[in-house]
Design a protein around this nucleic acid. Structure first.
Lengths: 235, 235
DNA sequence: TAAGTTAGTTGGACTGTACAACTAAGTATG
DNA sequence: CATACTTAGTTGTACAGTCCAACTAACTTA
C-alpha cells in the first residue's frame, strides 16, 4: 500500500450479518448463532445474527458475502435475500469502529428444518424481540428486519418465499397471518390475492382432512410483486 | 493493532455517499460534485455523488458522517436524511475492495439555492438518469435513490420535506406531480391529503395571481407518515 | 349414518376514489 | 370599467374493492 500513501489511514472493520427468517411450528422464527468463547472475542457465549468479516479475497461483493454466510449456516443456496441496511459506529463493536451490512433471508419451512450447524438455533420472534439478549447491536438490526418484513407483507408477495413450492390458499393466508400477527378476512384475502396475479393454480389438488383444496404456486417473478392496497384488519 | 493479531487482515475501504434531491425550476434535481484531477485519483474530472471516506476519528456513526458531508456541500444542518443502502464489491473502485453506505436527503428549494460550493452543481433528473456519466457505480446508486423516492411518494408524506415551511395545497400537489412525473387528480389528492392528517392549516392566506389560497404546514412528525392507499393515475 | 370441519361462494352494506361539472374570488385586458 | 380569464376549492355521481356474515359443498370421523 506504500505506492498509495493517500489510502494509508485507519479503516473501519467491515462485516456482513444475515437475519434468516422461517415459519416453524406456526410461528415466525429467526436463526441465531452462539458467539465463541475464545479470548479476545467480544460478547463470548452470547447469541448473535449469523455473519462475520468480509473476506476481500473470497467475496466478489456484499451480496455474495451474505449468500456465503447463509449457505455456511443453512446449506441453502438461492433463497430470497434482500439488503436491510447498514449499521456503523465507533461504539457497536469493542474491537473498534465497525460497519455491518445487514441482509435478511426468507426460508421455506422444510429448508429451515435442514439446518444442522451445532452452534445455530432457531428462536421464535415475539413482537419485535427474541428471548436471548443479542450481541452487538443485533437486537436493533433484528427489530428493523421484523418491521421491514411486516411492512412488506402488507403490500407485496414476500410471504410466498416462506412457502413450499406448492401450497393452498388457506395455507398462504395462514402464513400472512403468522407474519402479521393478526387475523385476515378470508374472502377479501382470496379476492386480492387472485387479483394481484401473483400465484397460479396447479392441476393437482391436495387431499386434506376435509375436501380437496386447490394447490397454487408462485408465478415466475424475480422481485416480489406489489399489491395496490394494504390489508385492513377486520373489525 | 499488534495486540489483536486476529484483526490483522485487509479491510475494505469504507465510504459514505449522499444523494441530495431538491425541486428547482419545476424539476427534480440532484446535486453532483466534480472529482479532482490530481494524480492517482479515480475518475478524474467526472461527476459523482457527494461523499468520501469515513473518518473514524471524527464520525461517531454512519449517519453523522453523512450529515457532515451534506453540511460541507450545502450548509444545511438538519434536513430529511434517510439511509438508502450499501454497495460494496472488489470492482467498484480502482483503489481496491470498497463499500459505500449511501444516504439520500431532501432539501427545500430555497435551501438548495444556497449551495455555493465551486465544485458542486445541480442536475435535472430525467427518468432515472442525469446527463453526465457518473463516477464509480454512482449511476446505479442514483437510480435506486430515484426509485426509492418515487415509491415512497406513493404512500408517505415525503414530498413535504421538499416544500418551504408553509405552502398551499396546489403547491404540494405540484411537488407530488413533479416527483412522480404524472398528473394527479385534484379532488382525490385533496381528500386523501387532508384525511391523512399530515398537514394543518395556518391562519394566513397567500395572495396569488388569483384568489387567496389557504396556507398549510407539515404537522410535527419525526418520520414521514404513511398513507393507507396508493395514488392511482387518472384515466 | 350423523356430526364436524374446512374450502370456497354469494350478496349486501359501506367506504374511498375517479371524474366532471360547478362556484367563487381574484387578475388581466380591452 | 366591463368582460374574460385563471385558479382555489366544492359538490355529486359512478364505480370498485373491502368487510362481514351467511351459505353451499366435500370430505373425515365417531
Amino acid at each position: 500500500m506504500s505506492d498509495r500513501p493517500e489510502l494509508d489511514f485507519p479503516r473501519p472493520l467491515t462485516t456482513v450479518d444475515v437475519v434468516i427468517f422461517a415459519i416453524r411450528s406456526d410461528a415466525l422464527q429467526v436463526l441465531l448463532v452462539q458467539r465463541p468463547t475464545a479470548k479476545n472475542e467480544p460478547f463470548p457465549g452470547a447469541w448473535a445474527l449469523p455473519g462475520g468479516f468480509v473476506d476481500i479475497a473470497a467475496d466478489r461483493d456484499l451480496e455474495a458475502c451474505a449468500a456465503r454466510k447463509l449457505k455456511d449456516k443453512t446449506g441453502v443456496v438461492s433463497p430470497y435475500l434482500e439488503q436491510l441496511g447498514s449499521w456503523g459506529s465507533a461504539a457497536r463493536d469493542p474491537r473498534g469502529w465497525s460497519a455491518t451490512h445487514a441482509y435478511f433471508a426468507l426460508l421455506p419451512e422444510q429448508a429451515a428444518g435442514g439446518v444442522q450447524a451445532t452452534d445455530a438455533q432457531w428462536f421464535a420472534v415475539d413482537g419485535e424481540k427474541v428471548k436471548p439478549r443479542l450481541a452487538f447491536d443485533h437486537a436493533e438490526i433484528l427489530a428493523t428486519a421484523i418491521q421491514r418484513l411486516r411492512s412488506k407483507v402488507e403490500y407485496t408477495s414476500l410471504p410466498a418465499y416462506l412457502m413450499p413450492p406448492e401450497f393452498t390458499l388457506p395455507e398462504l393466508q395462514r402464513t400472512y397471518e403468522i407474519v402479521l400477527d393478526r387475523p385476515l378476512e378470508k374472502s377479501a384475502f382470496r379476492t386480492r390475492m387472485l387479483a394481484a396475479d401473483l400465484i397460479e393454480p396447479v392441476a393437482r389438488m391436495r387431499k386434506g382432512p376435509n375436501r380437496p383444496a386447490q394447490l397454487y404456486r408462485l408465478k415466475k417473478a424475480k422481485a416480489p410483486v406489489f399489491f395496490a392496497r394494504t390489508f385492513n384488519p377486520p373489525g
